[in-house]
Design a protein around this nucleic acid. Structure first.
Lengths: 158, 158
DNA sequence: TATTGTTATACTCTATAACTATA
DNA sequence: TATAGTTATAGAGTATAACAATA
């Protein structure tokens, strides 16, 4: 038995904000980020690990500068992330024999295996995020988001 | 005359990231945020000002706690924001006569005028964000985003 | 002189804890 | 004792500046 008058009313966002595409995009993006961080943490991983491993999996050989450019991280910021991944045995850093300033970064076998595992987590997050949509609606949304990303960020050009 | 071989090739995001709805949502959300911040800065304003003023415009009278709940800010974080808005003469804080612990926050005339101005900026950002879509596509996207927001955040329930 | 990776530092945004005045 | 607002502090994430090795 609950006294309804004591149920705290949920505060509502202003309609003009709840209807603005840019505010909605920011909110959905934050929800996606929160879900991603939570899912990776539960799996004993960190989101940036997936991103770095995915970059290494698609490109032949990568220097730290190219990885940083793809992920839009500062090169100095990437150093610590790679240190962590290297410490876990997921990546390797070797000097480029043609240009000894460069490090050639590559996936280890353990890194490839970890990437496969993390892909499963990303799939679960995607499914959970879009759970309230039909299959057709999910395709539509994905297509529209991909077009917007391509329009505003050359890294997402198709 | 440009030597094409010197044009730096744009680094491409891994396909599995560029196709993931959650990663796309995060990216679009960040783009929306960057555009919003830039547009407000150019107009001599800050994004949180619009959000706070919009909350005050829709609700009758608001205490600081309710404003913080709607915007999901910590109450202590909100204090400094309101200080700034009050310093600019956009809002007023008065003691609640029925409960002297509370501040009743309300829009001033200048605040209402500023809100009208900022609404124009939000409209421009929305238009710019969706510029590459048709009118029908914009409506579709807005509807899908609104449904996702409602599904994951009670403040956006319809 | 310019570039790659590195280290150290600073800044922004937000979360936490402790305090006051009221209830 | 509990709550509203406030102050001060701490943390995560990222950006900036300076540096050594190499080109």
């Amino acid at each position: 038995m609950v006294d309804v008058t004591e149920l705290k009313q949920v505060a509502r966002a202003p309609r003009e904000i709840a209807e603005s595409p840019s505010f909605l995009a920011k909110r959905i993006g934050m929800i996606a980020k929160e879900k991603t961080v939570a899912a990776f943490e539960e799996a004993g991983a960190v989101p940036f690990a997936y991103a770095v491993l995915a970059v290494l999996a698609q490109g032949a050989c990568a220097t730290q500068a190219t990885i940083a450019d793809v992920l839009r991280y500062d090169r100095s910021y990437l150093v610590g992330l790679l240190d962590e991944l290297e410490g876990d045995g997921l990546i390797e850093r070797r000097r480029d024999v043609n240009d000894r300033r460069r490090h050639v970064v590559s996936l280890t076998k353990a890194g490839q295996k970890e990437l496969d595992r993390l892909r499963g987590i990303v799939g679960e997050v995607d499914a959970e995020l879009l759970a309230s949509l039909t299959g057709a609606e999910r395709k539509t949304l994905q297509g529209l988001l991909a077009r917007l990303a391509a329009a505003h960020d050359p890294r997402y050009a198709s």
